[in-house]
């Protein structure tokens, strides 16, 4: 475990906690894409299949449980909670996320580290995570006044992947034959997708103006 990876995991944790707190306290999911939340729940479900069969460390197990619980809780809030569901921006959250699940599944079948169910599911989850933010970014472009918590959620979600890239660089130079092309390429693609969001987010923060993403 290196500092970059720990910082990355903590930033990822902060992003889901920020979102869960926002939804739980103000009972609103305005500006939040249900599709991105569903994709993330699927990412964790597909990636953490080995949760009970392969013990890495207490930290690893606890974090997996937290990510699984938080992502499914957020989806539950947005679908089932009588107050929160009414604040869901259904008519603007129209990204056809089914169109990205299938290609990621096919890619997982073609490009994986080992052709076993668990490894295919793992690769699928890596590819899916790379594009899971798309519905949320599209929704942000359509949302007029983006509330701070949602913007912070997306920012931390992007920041965690940037930190993971530093983690991979560090591990590449400190651990012999630490090579994970699948994670590396998908992780870089994922980070690039946040590019313009980061640009406008930092600009709005610097000029102290409301975040606006150009459509």
């Amino acid at each position: 475990m290196n500092l970059f990876r720990l910082a990355g995991d903590m930033t990822h944790l902060v992003s889901v906690v920020v979102l869960l707190l926002k939804i739980h306290t103000i009972k609103s999911c305005a500006g939040v894409s249900l599709k991105t939340q569903e994709l993330y729940a699927l990412v964790f479900a597909a990636r953490y299949l080995d949760l009970f069969v392969h013990f890495v460390s207490l930290y690893n197990t606890v974090m997996k449980l937290v990510f699984l619980a938080s992502s499914f809780t957020i989806v539950w809030y947005m679908r089932r909670h009588k107050i929160v569901r009414r604040t869901y921006d259904k008519e603007h959250d129209t990204f056809r996320h089914h169109f990205i699940v299938l290609p990621c599944l096919v890619l997982g079948l073609l490009l994986n580290e080992k052709f076993t169910f668990r490894e295919v599911m793992w690769a699928f989850s890596i590819y899916l995570e790379a594009v899971a933010i798309l519905p949320q970014l599209v929704l942000l472009q359509r949302t007029r006044n983006i509330d701070n918590l949602t913007a912070q959620y997306v920012f931390f979600l992007g920041a965690y992947r940037v930190l993971y890239i530093f983690n991979w660089i560090y591990r590449y130079f400190t651990e012999p034959h630490f090579v994970h092309w699948i994670s590396w390429i998908a992780g870089i693609v994922q980070t690039l997708l946040y590019g313009d969001f980061f640009y406008y987010y930092i600009l709005s923060w610097k000029n102290n103006v409301k975040l606006e993403l150009p459509a």
Binding site: D50, V56, N60, F67, N167
Partner: peptide
């Protein structure tokens, strides 16, 4: 080692 062929990252 076992952890080598498994994914130790989240």
């Amino acid at each position: 080692s076992a952890s080598q062929d498994h994914h130790d990252e989240l």
